[in-house]
Simulated assay, not measured.
Amino acid sequence: MNEIDMKNIGLDTKFEKEATSYKDLYVGRVISQSKDIYKVATENGELLAQISGKFRYDVVVSSDYPAVGDFVMLDRNEDTSGKVIIHKVLTRKSAFIRKASGTSHDEQIIAANIDTVFICMSLNKDFNLRRIERYLGITWDSGATPVIVLTKADLCDDVNQKLLDLETVACGVDVLVTSSVDDDGHSSVQKYFGVGKTVAFLGSSGVGKSTLINKLTGKNTIKTNELRNDDKGRHTTTRREIIILPNGGVVIDTPGMREIGLESADLSITFADIDTLAAGCKFNDCSHISEPGCAVKKAIREGELTEERFASYLKLKKEAKYEGLNAKQIETEKLNEMFKEVGGMKKARKFIEKSNR
């Protein structure tokens, strides 16, 4: 087996410290999954793994299971007899979560421990500010840092105008412009990669994610397909997997991320401009619809805020089940959801205060 530099694929001091608390176990990172079988990277090479019976018995929700990007504790790190056994998932520093459909509160981890998310969008008909807002909300909530990557610059005649349009929604987010035609058309993304860095790609099929990954790896790692004539891409990647880069770090190509819902999206960062405006409203519970003294409606009338962005804000709040709530109320709602098993945030706070006495 080929040895793997675990620090290169993201094993930092935080994970190392936590791993030392599990004696007689070895650390690995999940690099792909096929049903109940996982492929893990260890210092001695790649191994096939499965979870232990106790692990399966202790699972409460689907998100407890290992996911691509997770660091896990194994019974061994050598291919001696059969599949290695996963006994523990180390604490995630970031996670992309997909909620179950219907009334179930179950959730699935799509990918974990990502540092940077490239939100990819082509500079042709695929360009859509509302989609950017959606992806930003999802990324901020995951704990990762978003970077907007605009692809196919060679097919666009008004790149500067699109960059100006992006300024209205990409508050404080880096924006990169790439082209698959030029040899150095992807050089701007290189600074986000390096030893220990994990980058994931998010965006519609056919916008150039696979092309960009192939350039980073220096080979045709992933099959590519262009957008169809109706501007909808074909799904070229069928499973999530980690790809180790020759110059350091890893990328995760994650087709399932396009299916992530907005139930827990962080809209307070994505729409920080609207929340700032809302602080100037006459009423604290202003819905920004018909109340007098509404600073948000005033900003729209004066051209400081577009009707389209405000409409997107309302739509995404509704989809995330935060309709009618302001930023502070949304944060309270999210905390209550986090502590629902102990009776909500108020009871959790009382429990913490009692424990600290």
Results as ranks from 00 to 15, higher is better:
Ala348Tyr: 03
Ala348Leu: 03
Gly102Leu: 03
Glu46Val: 13
Thr178Trp: 05
Ser122Glu: 02
Gly28Val: 03
Asn8Asp: 11
Glu308Ile: 11
Ser179Cys: 01
Thr116Asp: 02
Ala348Met: 15
Gly206Phe: 10
Gly343Lys: 14
Ser142Asp: 09
Val173Ser: 05
Asn229Cys: 04
Ile97Asp: 07
Ala144Thr: 09
Ile51Asp: 00
Ala272Met: 09
Leu305Asn: 01
Asn356Val: 09
Gly45Leu: 11
Ser81Thr: 08
Arg130Glu: 09
Lys88Asp: 05
Gly248Glu: 07
Pro292Glu: 06
Ala67Met: 01
Lys354Glu: 11
Glu353Phe: 12
Ser264Trp: 10
Ile330Arg: 15
Lys54Arg: 11
Phe201Asp: 06
Asn229Ala: 07
Ala272Pro: 11
Lys328Arg: 14
Val177Ala: 05
Ile109Leu: 02
Pro292Arg: 09
Ser21Glu: 09
Lys334Asp: 11
Val296Cys: 03
Thr139Phe: 06
Glu18Thr: 11
Gly69Thr: 00
Gly293Glu: 04
Asp24Cys: 05
Asn220Trp: 07
Leu277Arg: 03
Asp157Arg: 10
His105Thr: 14
Asn336Asp: 11
Tyr322Cys: 10
Arg29Gln: 07
Ser34Phe: 15
Arg134Ala: 00
Val84Leu: 05
Lys347Asn: 15
Glu18Cys: 04
Leu47Ala: 06
Leu262Glu: 04
Lys328Leu: 09
Gly248Asp: 04
Ile31Asn: 04
Asn160Tyr: 00
Gly203Val: 09
Trp140Ile: 04
Tyr192Ala: 10
Ser63Trp: 02
Thr224Phe: 01
Leu216Gln: 15
Gly45Met: 09
Asp158Tyr: 07
Lys88Ala: 08
Glu167Phe: 04
Lys14Asp: 08
Phe96Cys: 03
Leu227Lys: 15
Thr238Ser: 15
Glu337Ser: 15
Asp5Gln: 14
Gly280Tyr: 14
Val149Gly: 05
Leu129Glu: 02
Ile148Tyr: 03
Gly256Arg: 00
Met6Gln: 13
Ala320Gln: 02
Asp230Gln: 12
Asn247Gln: 12
Glu46Ala: 02
Ser142Met: 06
Ile274Arg: 14
Phe193His: 13
Ser268Gly: 10
Ala41Gln: 02
Glu46Ser: 01
Arg98Ser: 01
Val296Trp: 09
Arg131Lys: 05
Asp70Gly: 06
Leu11Gly: 00
Asp174Ala: 06
His105Val: 10
Asp231Gly: 07
Glu263Leu: 15
Glu241Gln: 15
Phe193Met: 06
Tyr38Asp: 00
Lys39Ile: 11
Glu16Ala: 14
Val181Ala: 08
Asn128His: 02
Lys318Cys: 10
Tyr57Glu: 02
Leu267Ile: 13
Ala279Asn: 14
Glu323Leu: 11
Asp36Ile: 06
Ile97Trp: 04
Leu325Glu: 01
Ala111Gly: 14
Lys23Leu: 12
Arg301Gly: 10
Glu43Ser: 12
Ser81Arg: 12
Phe15Ser: 08
Lys7Met: 05
Cys120Met: 07
Tyr322Gly: 01
Leu216Tyr: 12
Lys297Asp: 05
Val199Ala: 01
Ser81Gly: 11
Asp157Tyr: 07
Thr80Trp: 03
Thr151Cys: 06
Val296Met: 06
Thr145Ala: 06
Asp12Lys: 02
Tyr135Ala: 00
Val30Gln: 02
Leu150Tyr: 07
Ala278His: 14
Lys350Thr: 14
Arg130Tyr: 10
Lys88Met: 13
Ser187Lys: 12
Gln329Ala: 12
Arg357Asp: 10
Cys156Phe: 09
Glu226Val: 13
Ile242Pro: 12
Ile37Cys: 01
